[in-house]
Design a protein around this nucleic acid. Sequence first.
DNA 1: CCCTTATATGCCTTGACACGTATATACAAA
DNA 2: TTTGTATATACGTGTCAAGGCATATAAGGG
Lengths: 107, 107
Amino acid sequence: METVWSALVDPHRRALLDLLREGPRAVGELAGELGLSQPMTSKHLRVLREADLVRVRTQAQRRIYTIAPDRMAELDAWLAPYRRLWNDRLDALGRHLDDDDDDRKET
Amino acid sequence: METVWSALVDPHRRALLDLLREGPRAVGELAGELGLSQPMTSKHLRVLREADLVRVRTQAQRRIYTIAPDRMAELDAWLAPYRRLWNDRLDALGRHLDDDDDDRKET
DNA sequence: CCCTTATATGCCTTGACACGTATATACAAA
DNA sequence: TTTGTATATACGTGTCAAGGCATATAAGGG
């Protein structure tokens, strides 16, 4: 769990995950799209790998990285009890003000 | 947003928020319950304060800290597109068991 | 006014981490 | 094997933050 937090705190690693959310990619593609050097990309991917946030499969010389969202569910579980707090707060605001009324939960 | 991440990455600060989720408390109480020194508690609270994750009000010599969950909603927003991923995964696993359409949380 | 309580801040050390550069490893084609 | 491509790792460096300790600030009570 702490590994997940320390992996996600870095903006580059979150950007990597955002890219991988659209589909599996090789290291070179990720580096190119983020404007990141290849060694740094590999290092960041290693951190994500050791946090079980991504998986890798080998295809010729390329390493194809895939997102593995299970551990992010843990983060969501941590966040869950707080979600109630800000929902209540939005409810309270919505009762007093009319500008924020609909669509406050479940994207 | 980055401020929120770097504030939440520290386990002590997350523990502080977990305590404040149950209700507002003074610095001394928080320090006592976490076994943390008073200066460190104040410093961590400062980080949370500057990330707008807590608010403080003065009551005599005490500073009463309250949770301010609005910024955590941003984190939830970042997490939202991933939630679809692991929900799909759970759906695939549990398709033959209990099959309801959407909301499967609230344990 | 002291004096005590409660909290914040300043200084310092240490450790972790991001980054760049260079090199190593893995695989494939010639 | 040699060469080229793709990725990983090793090393050195600078930065930044957590932690302890001491001290400053604030507020109330005698």
